[in-house]
Design a protein around this nucleic acid. Structure first.
Lengths: 251, 251
DNA sequence: CCGATTTTGTTCTCACGTTCACAAGCTCCT
DNA sequence: AGGAGCTTGTGAACGTGAGAACAAAATCGG
């Protein structure tokens, strides 16, 4: 059925199995929405129903799903279980992915305990930290192990995803070690920009950035007319008078 | 080719002080990069330097900054402290924002302890939960208070930002209460789609979605040629045989 | 069996975001 | 002082994404 071309050679940018990144980012949302409908005993849902459950508009949802194939039935809608399976397969969560968490501070602790972590598809195989005081501590049914064991663990359990929950300082080094050990996907919670070689995917979750984005819009709302009115040259007391120790320009 | 000449010559879409959303999302990154440079004693930086520190390309960075005004000096670069101040002001973190955290489970705990939270600009004024067993518990220098006190706290401290770290179940109700109390910006960690009235901003941080996006790309890498090869009609044993209790189409 | 009705899949258009390329403007050296 | 050398700010091309609209396909009632 896939009438790939047969049209104008104009925009052939449709990579045969390349799904737009924006769509990929929404597929997990659809998956969750479908799971919710399924749990409610709903067997069939229209794009409108699904879109409402997922918080998007129905045209966008239909277009997104069309990248996966024609899994709906015109005049009827989508079979919830069937579509759920197809999306899960496309995302890759029909198989299990081994995950290590590095940095067992407050956040690492929270993630280790987060049951919803394994929304099926992900299996935490190790909690790692370099702090001797933490090594050996039990969290749930796991035990914190020495970061030095990383390479062995990655090889033994075929770990492909690493989660970094260390402070900013050691994050890049941890990242390098993960990559060297063979991890090819990283989820970073440390507030730094990590650099990785090509072929390694990295995603960032940054609390303070999210808050700052909210603050920007908040300022717009409350201070609609009360903005600081652009102090082009504010009192730079003590700001520009830095020692200029190693500045690229400082004398 | 481009016969778009019939359009308006000058796209006045430049809302006088309207900064593109994509740019807003990067400003906090620039702010952090500038702070890092500042801490290193760097007084001046070129767009190339900054772009490297922020993990973006320099053209994008320059365009982003141009929305704020002309704060650089041609042939020289940007004064680190001055630019930092301007971005901080634009985002709104030169003032303090009062924040409440609702749901003091593992994640709420972690956030409450997260010192970097107050990367200056944000002040946690209350930790709330509805569980009597948690109320009164001390976390750092704060104490968990009853969610019922929400309205009083919001009014007293002029809280405009709420962070939801409850499980999925109560999240929407908590959200509604926050909005009713006057909170106009929400950061949601619960794995549900929340609906809010116009005028309320909401941002979502979702661990399992991030992991699933990584999984998708990971599958592409490892299984380049070994994909399940589209089982158009997989064994739907027990999947389509649901009771179809409330399906819009059942019967 | 056929037309009315429903809902998908797709096309088209517009808006947004990214990148390139270069003129404008600043500093420094001769 | 004047030109060489940088670096910013921006105009224009390009690519991606969103939404409206509609033709195609399936069901259902008569």
């Amino acid at each position: 059925m896939t009438r790939a071309s047969s049209r104008r050679p104009g925009p052939p940018t449709r990579t045969e199995r390349g799904i737009p990144e924006a769509t990929v980012a929404r597929l997990p949302v659809y998956l969750r929405a479908l799971t919710g409908l399924s749990d409610s005993g709903i067997a069939t849902a229209s794009s409108e129903d699904l879109a409402t459950a997922a918080g998007v508009n129905s045209a966008k949802l239909r277009k997104d799903l069309s990248y996966l194939g024609s899994y709906g039935t015109r005049g009827v809608g989508y079979d919830v279980e069937y579509l759920r399976y197809q999306i899960a397969r496309e995302i890759g969560v029909t198989q299990d992915w081994a995950v290590v968490i590095v940095g067992i501070g407050n956040l690492g602790h929270a993630l280790a305990n987060y049951s919803g972590f394994g929304t099926r598809g992900f299996r935490i195989v190790a909690l790692l930290d370099a702090d001797p005081n933490l090594i050996g501590e039990r969290i749930g049914d796991m035990e914190v192990r020495d970061f030095a064991e990383l390479e062995d663990i990655v090889k033994a359990d075929r770990v492909s995803i690493g989660v970094i929950t260390t402070p900013a300082g050691p994050a890049q080094e941890v990242c390098d070690r993960l990559v060297a050990a063979g991890v090819t996907s990283i989820l970073n919670f440390a507030p730094v920009v990590l650099s990785v070689p090509d072929g390694v995917d990295i995603r960032k979750v940054d609390l303070s950035i999210e808050l700052q984005i909210l603050a920007y819009h908040e300022q717009r709302k409350s201070g609609e007319a009360g903005l600081p009115e652009v102090p082009e040259l504010p009192a730079m007391n003590g700001l520009t008078d830095l020692p200029s120790v190693g500045g690229g320009v400082g004398a």
